[in-house]
């Protein structure tokens, strides 16, 4: 059951990866990267349940924090460099 859910989420990540590569502007790419990060957190939690290792939950929590900080950081970086 959890394996099927993982496969579905990986397919969804590939769909969003299209927008990350093609996305006409910088903001589309940042948005798609943020969405992919959220899906990755869920994927990490599911991997922890499939292999019965609860340590993956700590990794997922840290990844959620990093994902949020990275979104803020990359937008600040863009502001200072004027990327598009």
């Amino acid at each position: 059951m959890f394996e099927i859910a993982e496969i579905i989420i990986v397919l969804a990540v590939f769909l969003v990866l299209y927008r990350t590569i093609v996305g006409p502007r910088f903001f589309d790419r940042a948005l798609a990267a943020n969405v992919m990060g959220t899906k990755t957190v869920v994927l990490l939690v599911l991997i922890g349940f499939v292999y019965a290792r609860p340590h993956f939950l700590d990794i997922a929590l840290v990844y959620a924090l990093i994902n949020f900080i990275a979104t803020l950081a990359i937008l600040k970086y863009r502001e200072s460099l004027g990327l598009d």
Partner: peptide, 16 residues
Amino acid sequence: LFTGCFFIVVAAIGVV
């Protein structure tokens, strides 16, 4: 679980 997967896939389709 599968309702959540459905919403995540719909979000991905929407982003594309």
